[in-house]
Amino acid sequence: MEAREKILQAVTANKPDLIELPEMDLSQAVRYSNLVEQFMNVLKASGADTFFENSGNLLVTDIDSVKQQGDFMINLLEKDERQEWEELTASELKGLDTCYIRAQLGVAENGAMWISEEQMSNRLLPFICQHLVIVLDPADIVDNMHQAYQQIKTGHNGFGVFIAGPSKTADIEQNLVIGAHGARSLRVYVI
């Protein structure tokens, strides 16, 4: 533990006098008159396909068509199916084509959706799939990140993630390429 003591001692010796935390009036943060519209617009700009519907028919059609193609898919929207995926390893999941998952919350300012370990059952699923489909209740969309952190229970599980689009990179000459290492596409159904 020598380094630990050394570092902590140096920090104690060198830190300045205590400075107070700011009082943050979070009501000053941006709000939107139409949360769903704002949320979907930002996601579209981030390269996601977005669908807003009442019935859920589009989602059913989506699932059916992927099923018909016969590719490896995982539907985490069905609660009973979750357990069987928990133990799968990366090499077992490498052929995963499409994964359906529910987000707990969406953020209008940036299109981010919170998915906790509870929903994903296996931490790899939202990342290793080629195509990710996220389902969200419009009532679960908040204006901004401050509201989001007030609502989500971050420490509830061992892992949680905000996802705000398909994986992407601009590392070659600042050219935007959709499909880096995570999912190559993202479809979002706001139902």
Partner: peptide, 23 residues
């Protein structure tokens, strides 16, 4: 809210992963 907007102009990075416990 500040990080990605300052870095690349994105409203947030695609993935913001929160680690609490090992699986």
């Amino acid at each position: 809210r500040l990080l990605a907007r300052s870095a690349t102009g994105q409203p947030i990075t695609t993935y913001s992963s929160h680690f609490y416990k090992p699986r």
